[in-house]
Design a binder for these strands. Sequence first.
DNA 1: TACTTTCGTGTAATCGATTACATTTATGAA
DNA 2: TTCATAAATGTAATCGATTACACGAAAGTA
Lengths: 343, 343
Amino acid sequence: MSGKTTIYDIAKKLNITAATVSRALNNNSKISEATRKLVMETAAQMNYKQNKLALALKSGKSNNIGVIVPRLDSNFFATVIRGIEEELYPHGFHVIICQTRDDKNLEIENIDALLNAQVDGILMSISNVSIEQNESFKRILKKNVPLIFFDRKANINGVSTVTINDFHGAYEATKHLINQGCKRIAHLSNNRLIEIFRDRYLGYKQAILDSGLEFDESIVIETISKVEEGRKITKILLNMDNPPDAIFSSSDFTALGAIQEIKAQGLKIPQDICVAGFANEPFTKFMELSITSVDQSPLEMGKMTAKVFLEQVRNNDTIKIEKKVILKPKLLIRKSSSKNSNE
Amino acid sequence: MSGKTTIYDIAKKLNITAATVSRALNNNSKISEATRKLVMETAAQMNYKQNKLALALKSGKSNNIGVIVPRLDSNFFATVIRGIEEELYPHGFHVIICQTRDDKNLEIENIDALLNAQVDGILMSISNVSIEQNESFKRILKKNVPLIFFDRKANINGVSTVTINDFHGAYEATKHLINQGCKRIAHLSNNRLIEIFRDRYLGYKQAILDSGLEFDESIVIETISKVEEGRKITKILLNMDNPPDAIFSSSDFTALGAIQEIKAQGLKIPQDICVAGFANEPFTKFMELSITSVDQSPLEMGKMTAKVFLEQVRNNDTIKIEKKVILKPKLLIRKSSSKNSNE
DNA sequence: TACTTTCGTGTAATCGATTACATTTATGAA
DNA sequence: TTCATAAATGTAATCGATTACACGAAAGTA
């Protein structure tokens, strides 16, 4: 009784069949205007609400889409998801969130769980790349469930992706440091098996080579995205015989750590050393010594990912679309690397 | 064919009925060990995956729970949701995310959509309080769907809540400013129809009264949580005949705006004016002039909210639980208000 | 008048699982 | 041997909606 009206209840009340009720509610094929109106009114009066589960089972469409990310409490992913949700909501889709916590097994588990829940699509940013993952991805595709990667992608045939041009972003940032007069630019990298970090590294390298500067692999250091790590590595760099005069970091957090260490050693930013990060985390703008960074347009990335998905479902059976959207990153020059200007 | 094995497929292959297959897969009542094993093996071999939708329709439990927040891209809400997801995941629940963007109608729409999707519970932080909302809440309860508020709650009979003691947090922060020697403390407030902001205001007020200082309503100003607003209001405060010597803000963002304006006017923090915020946004710690703030333990809040929900579903039909969990806020004293110490 | 359309509605299958009840078969007791 | 009991499986309803097909009545045509 408690708030559960079905089409059968309406049918019984009006002495007609559930089929007729269903047709009336859906403005479907041929139904007499009289009964249509009657059913509509009775439904409203009885506070009828369509049971989406029943619909989902029948139609095979749950109207849920799964989003898998390494973690939620990062400004970047949270904002991407916001974009996805805002774009998908008007189309009646709900977003189911899963976190992998960078755990390979959890990633596989999540994919299976989402498939069992009959999601209509999976949008994800991968955590790791491995053979087992590829199995999971294939399972998704075999079920004909649209799969779209954003930001951290794997290269799989037939899968659409939405990314930013990490190479370009890193190239621009490094070029900017060179334009400031920096000659020996260190790079704080991250796991380069992940494409975004490899691309940032390559962009950095290319900018240095294009400018005729010496490329020195010994001042490229792979680490993880933590403030403390940035400090630790920077300490090592500053103690070198030939220390760098700039640091380009693939993460804002390590960039912040670098800044802390540089200051702790009594050096001046940007006069002695310039620093640039990547991701445009909110704090980079808020710092008194604001940090130069590369914006990844997370909101736009989320919306675009959702749009690519919508396009895919719209043509699901007829056309096979593989779309590679590459957003343009935006270099935000701030105090941490502005030797000349005032801002 | 594409990856869709049902229990009927298994049954046909083994020349038994779907009922037997179901029983075997569920280790249910009496089933011969032989068939159980046979079914299990065949299921694995045919790559059978249970269709959760069918199960959900039959059982009335979707194993999805809805989470409604004003927005996702705030560190606080993102972290709460992370906590909820991590706690619920091991129990087989999935989290469906909805944003209200502080829009009253969207909030109602979201509730209805979640109910139609047959979620097993709704965890939410309200955006506004109004009569229509109350109607929605009643609909949830009438359907016997567990409803739990976190952080921003409404006072509704029979609904469990998880909040922090905002009064206490504000009281402590204000007390701390007084202990630093501040005599005239302004308060940047926010919409006090929302309980958390009212409580912060009341805690602030009580601390001042308890200390025998003069309480002056004219330096309590209601605004919204934006950096620019904080700047604007602070400008007004500093131009008063009798400007404040401290600012306690109910938001870290307005606190940051205050700091920017104070510095712009050539005043020193904390020597001339002390500042404290609320929420412990990541940037408050990262600033060179780190900002004193009140931590709300968002991760714990999320986990606790999930736990209260789990407890509720576990006893759903037998007991009616109304639980009010109040977490203790933690004052983090940083440079923006430390006249004496070094940290 | 007789026959074909058209319109509106009813019948029943379907989506994939669970489960109360019925039925068959095996087992043990007397 | 015979019957009661237990064990294993089958039958069919159910969750709530959609929809192909069937059917009767009304309307149109010759």
